[in-house]
Write a protein that binds this DNA or RNA. Structure first.
Lengths: 349, 349
DNA sequence: TTGTAAGCGTTATCAT
DNA sequence: ATGATAACGCTTACAA
């Protein structure tokens, strides 16, 4: 059996309250006594029993992060960021792998209530009324990471997807591309879907490039779906010179399709992604993409959450994290191109 | 405040012991009464307070999985498997992201002791005496996943790395390759390093193919290190026709290097990996590799752990999980090749 | 500044 | 079959 507070008290010749105070309010106890107690604590290797403290003040020092799938490196990265701040705040983080399934979500929530987790970081699935209701019932602080809940006034940490998507598209245009196809996520996805879609449209319009349903194809945000989407897009736009995909997974699926068609990237078709997953630098050529500071998003969400836990009243503000375009090898500059591969010399406006 | 067992008892007009029994030993309570209590439990939304039960029987229903890095999809996959069994056993799993750092490990362990976690799954770092000592001190069941601790008689779940590596090498040989370079992990890594290295050597020897230090290059098991290793290997063996890397990450790093040198895979050089990470099907061409059933490893480790937790005395046996060679597009068959790319027709023995 | 004692919610032992 | 009660280890009024 582990030593209890009573063992420490006895051995140090003080009352158990004194021992407790040494932990929770050290200043309030006489230096000499404190040192004696600390000494004994050390000797006995005493540590407070978390169940007992939890029972008293109903706090677990545990937070939970809910993500659709751990195997997706986007979330793994975010989790790393959350973990870092958690560890330094002496919190433990547990993971809820929801796989975008409401039933599974409920299963977890039941568990969390039972475990009395102190806070929740919810990542990247659309916030429907269903989720919102459950958050409310949980009665613990909730931070959204890479999702948005403006409708319900939930604090969030995320990238400005519209702006980033606009810039990605503009980058392609500045490189001389006009026939640009867009592989969109599902438009019902509030962030990665809708906003990136509109960012694309916005940039095209701003550069007076016409767009129509011909330019875009909708897809789930996975590698396989990206592959299929590229097939459809290519059928619709055989003349395209560039493809912009709303996620790296899709972009890499698209590259796979192009490769299989004997189309070289970027010689024949340029490709631009979004997310900067680790894999984007592993493929050949490296994928030019929009980098989210995913780790940073996790850290910030964690920090905000702890703040909310410590100080329940204060209203939290949503935060936007910077993004950046990472230029690697999949976008060809058609403007100052000496040799387009077909031997011709061209300068576009 | 949440309803307590007392609230239920009062409302159902029974004693708290009866309510407790309804949870822990339902048969022992009269049907009629049980139903009445269940009814009230439902109405009040009562759930037992985990701190209180924990305080009683010193069990947290929490297990921990320690891995070097969550961002590595190998571990993410394994974790998914562990999670599945945990959820169905009503356990919660928390993650310790050690990043192969002893200090960090200790920080976590301290936390675990405090949290009274019920068991530990330890994945894929060499078991040194340091770890072994700490495991012992923890006094909870420990299962090794994709590592080995024969020296200390710790139960493990893993692939037969020697055998798998032997087969991977043999596959290359059967495809007509003789000048095969091997990118090895660090040989001090007990599994992925040493055994895969020896599997390579074993297969080469069995087919009477000479090997020397010329054939192998040692590397950390990462993408970047694989890239560098390929550069070194190519310098040593410019005539090689195939490269076998002890991990997919390294294999893909190697492919990147080859691509940059203008060497086509598999036309000029064949590549074989190990692990079957998700990324191995994403690259072009898809990587031929050895598949570990990583998810299965996780599930098995979890199952064994729960078994050990429930039944402390029983000795656990180590388990070997099947592996399989996944043929994709990076290995060229040099035996029945009509056109080797150089127009020549060849049949090797 | 220090100590005493009540109470957190549960389970298990013992009576009934 | 059911109920009363002690015990788990800690924190915090309150008393000294």
């Amino acid at each position: 059996m582990n030593p209890s507070i009573r063992d420490v008290a006895k051995k140090a010749n003080v009352s158990i309250s004194t021992v407790s105070r040494v932990f929770n309010n050290p200043e309030s106890v006489n230096q000499e006594m404190r040192e004696r107690v600390l000494q004994v604590i050390e000797e006995l290797g005493y540590a407070p029993n978390p169940f007992a403290s939890g029972l008293r003040d109903n706090r677990s020092k545990v937070i939970v992060t809910m993500i659709p799938d751990i195997r997706n490196s986007y979330y793994a990265e975010m989790l790393s960021g959350i973990e870092e701040v958690a560890l330094s705040n002496r919190y433990t983080v547990i993971i809820g792998n929801t796989i975008q399934n409401e039933e599974r979500f409920l299963e977890y929530v039941k568990n969390f209530v039972k475990m009395k987790v102190d806070g929740l970081i919810f990542a990247s699935t659309e916030i429907t009324e269903f989720y919102q209701k459950n958050f409310e019932a949980l009665k613990i602080p909730v931070i959204l990471a890479s999702t948005e809940g403006r409708e319900w006034n939930l604090p969030s940490v995320r990238v400005n997807d519209y702006q980033a998507s606009y810039e990605a598209t503009a980058f392609l245009i500045q490189n001389g591309h006009q026939d640009i196809g867009f592989i969109s996520g599902p438009t019902h996805a509030p962030i990665a879907g809708r906003e990136r879609y509109e960012g694309f449209l916005g940039a095209m319009a701003a550069h007076e490039l016409p767009t129509s349903e011909q330019n875009v194809v909708y897809s789930e945000m996975s590698f396989d779906a990206g592959y299929e989407a590229m097939a459809k897009l290519y059928a619709k736009m055989p003349h395209l010179t560039a493809v912009y995909a709303a996620s790296d997974s899709m972009a890499i699926g698209a590259m796979k399709f192009l490769h299989e068609q004997g189309l070289e990237v970027p010689r024949h078709v340029s490709v631009m992604g979004f997310d900067n997953l680790e894999i984007s630098r592993m493929v050949s050529p490296g994928l030019t993409t929009v980098a989210q500071q995913i780790y940073e998003i996790g850290k910030t969400a964690g920090t905000m959450l702890f703040q909310a836990i410590e100080n329940r009243e204060e209203e939290l503000q949503s935060v936007t994290i910077d993004h950046e375009i990472i230029v690697r090898g999949t976008v060809r500059n058609r403007r100052l191109m000496m040799d387009g591969g077909d031997g011709a010399f061209r300068v576009f406006v």
